[in-house]
Amino acid sequence: MKLLQALFFPPEQPGGVSSMIPYMQERFNPPHWEMELFSIPRRIRSKGKDPVEFHTFDWTVYEESPIVQKYIQTYRDYLWWTKLRIQKRYDLIHAHHPIAGLAMKQVFPDTPVIQTVHSSYERELLLNGKIEEGGLEHQFLVSIYKELEHRTDRMLTVSRSFLDYMAPYVNRPEDVGIISNGFDERRFKPVSHENEVAQLVTVCRLVPAKGLDILLRACAELKRKGHPYVLHIIGDGPIRPELEAMAQELGIYNETIFYGYTLHPEEFMPFFDIFVLPSRAEAFGSVFAEAALCCLALVGTHVGGIAEQIENGVGGLLVPPEDPQALADALEKVIVDPSYRYALARMGWDKAKSQYSIARSVHELKKLYLQYSS
């Protein structure tokens, strides 16, 4: 079977699906499987000119929004790049971004297209304060789910919680499958180490949706109570200057290290002790599984896919979102008791290896792909 994995971001993009799919490629071995990757380079801008028409709604109702205009132009650019670069036919296309799925089905209407929805662009924009709930942009973006359902041959998502989120926006939520992300455990190996001072780490894009303001307030509370720690923030984004200023105002700048963009954080993540990310929303939260495979104790918020990965008190600790005090209390538990911290980390590692291995994901995908073989 000749497969095409249609990404949006290039495979070298850190984090999420773009960094996961390439590691699956070696599991689809010839002669039975031939798998290739496709994505659009960042330099492609305003190349596409094709008219855009959706089957389930009239997008022009929302076209006065600059965000909608940008989305449509990106769709046109993806179409242009697809037509330019793909000259052969595939037996099956698996798309990992709505724009990729819609474009592939338009260019190759007779080829089965499976669509995995990994996250919610509109929720990210809402939480980051870029759009208003119920506004033009929000209405447009949630309408895309029904268009995907109408045009692609099968829809998947990555967690039960995200399926519940999508359910009001599709006609047949019962037909949407769930295949959680899989991770190559060879990339995430625990390393035996002893840190005299607890090392906290978070890896994410620096945007409001990730709740790093809550993390900094929780760390200020830890310092007030006299608990030594170092907080490592790996990632970059538009609110980095704001977070750095906040760390100074809270008096924890000396305890906080801002790394910026880092290509392979998994290479040194095993040397930390505690992974913490108080996200306001997560469809799955791949970085928690990655941290668990590095044998770090996990502390996260009771939202979305995070709560599916962590059973509170078993594989890690869960706290409500928007609650710095609860987060500080949870962090205190794992900072002051290394034995408890290690026990949590070990349980989280066992679960991640059994439930989020790349072998399991590949097995489930192969079964699905074979249903569409001619």
Rank of each mutant, 00 (worst) to 15 (best):
H97K: 09
K105M: 05
I99E: 01
A100D: 06
P109N: 06
H118R: 04
K88G: 09
D91L: 01
E124H: 02
L102C: 00
R123W: 00
Q106V: 08
Q115N: 09
L92N: 00
D91I: 03
Q87E: 10
P112Y: 15
A100I: 07
V117H: 04
D110F: 08
K83D: 04
H118D: 06
H96S: 12
I86F: 01
K105R: 07
H96N: 15
T82E: 07
Y121F: 11
G101L: 02
H97T: 10
Y121D: 12
I114M: 01
T116Y: 04
W80N: 10
R89C: 01
K88I: 08
A103Y: 00
S120H: 02
Y90V: 11
F108E: 14
E124A: 06
E122W: 01
I86E: 09
V107K: 01
L102M: 01
S119F: 02
R85N: 15
D110K: 14
P112I: 13
Q87Y: 01
K105Y: 04
V117I: 15
W80T: 05
D91A: 09
W80Y: 15
A103N: 06
A95F: 09
A100T: 08
A103W: 03
W80E: 14
Y90C: 01
K105N: 06
Q115F: 06
Y121N: 09
V117Y: 00
T111Q: 02
D110S: 14
Y121E: 14
A100N: 11
W81E: 05
I86W: 02
A103H: 04
V107P: 11
